[in-house]
């Protein structure tokens, strides 16, 4: 069950962040960036689908990717608090993406190393999913880094919006790097990564981007936590109400 839980967590992050980004579609600051955010959203939702499908397969209870994605209760979703935060303005959105990609990319890369040589079918499938995802997340990281720098070092207004975004979102950056029992079990089973081991690289990367963007990392920030264990922010219930609407209103239908 550890493998199942571990995959679901990865997938939930992707689904919820992909869902948030999809809210921008048609409302972006200009067409090219509207399309870029939709692209990232499509990548993340695509990753979540592959992962839910894999989870459903190993669970062999006859669930589908949609059963897992749409029919759980709020506390059963195990995504980070970061990814469920509202889009806010474009500064918030690009910063949230930078924080997440700075965690997700080294995580996927470290997992790929661990999965090398593992021959069981579900590990091979996961490796395939991650190999494709690494290319996508490399782009997400570059896109968000460029925008954080551009906005941080753009106009007085864009700088001040970036500062506000940093002050509001930095407290959600740290949860990704705090391990719990699921992480520990996955590490001991050989495919999991201790998130603490990814922190130095991510911190250094953020530090470098912030320096180029003329932004400071807030001091003495208490890192909010809970999403990984299913204790979410108040935003989550509303997000799920929309996400689950059709499946709840028309149970057992095919679409």
């Amino acid at each position: 069950m550890t493998f199942y839980d571990y995959i679901i967590r990865l997938a939930d992050n992707n689904l919820i962040l992909g869902h948030r980004l999809s809210e921008w579609c048609g409302h972006g600051p200009f067409l090219e960036q509207d399309m870029a955010m939709t692209n990232i959203s499509l990548d993340l939702i695509g990753q979540s689908r592959s992962m839910y499908a894999l989870a459903a397969e190993i669970n062999s209870k006859g669930e589908s990717e949609d059963d897992i994605a749409f029919l759980r209760l709020e506390h059963e979703y195990q995504n980070l608090l970061l990814v469920e935060q509202p889009n806010g303005d474009f500064a918030h959105t690009v910063l949230r993406q930078l924080f997440f990609a700075s965690f997700q990319l080294p995580l996927y890369q470290a997992m790929l190393q661990k999965l090398q040589g593992m021959t069981e079918e579900h590990f091979v499938t996961l490796r395939g999913i991650l190999e494709k995802a690494v290319m996508e997340v490399t782009y997400h990281k570059r896109w968000s880094s460029e925008w954080v720098i551009r906005l941080g070092d753009g106009t007085a207004e864009s700088h001040s919006r970036m500062v506000t975004a940093v002050n509001e979102l930095y407290r959600y950056y740290g949860e990704a790097f705090i391990s719990d029992a699921v992480d520990d079990a996955a590490v001991s089973e050989g495919y999991g990564v201790r998130p603490e081991e990814l922190k130095a690289e991510a911190d250094q990367y953020i530090d470098d981007i912030f320096r180029q963007a003329n932004l400071n990392i807030p001091v003495d920030t208490y890192m909010q936590r809970g999403g990984k264990q299913g204790v979410h922010s108040e935003y989550m219930g509303y997000l799920l109400s929309e996400l689950q609407y059709m499946q709840r209103a028309y149970p057992n239908a095919s679409w």
């Binding site: 999809s22 579609c25 399309m35």
Partner: peptide, 25 residues
């Protein structure tokens, strides 16, 4: 977009709307 009945439909709808943005361009 935020209320599609399945993930497959969500991805298809998003991609379609993105095509429309491309056509606009």
């Amino acid at each position: 977009i935020t209320r599609t009945p399945s993930l497959r439909r969500k991805v298809a709808l998003l991609a379609k709307i993105q095509d429309e943005a491309g056509h606009g361009l």
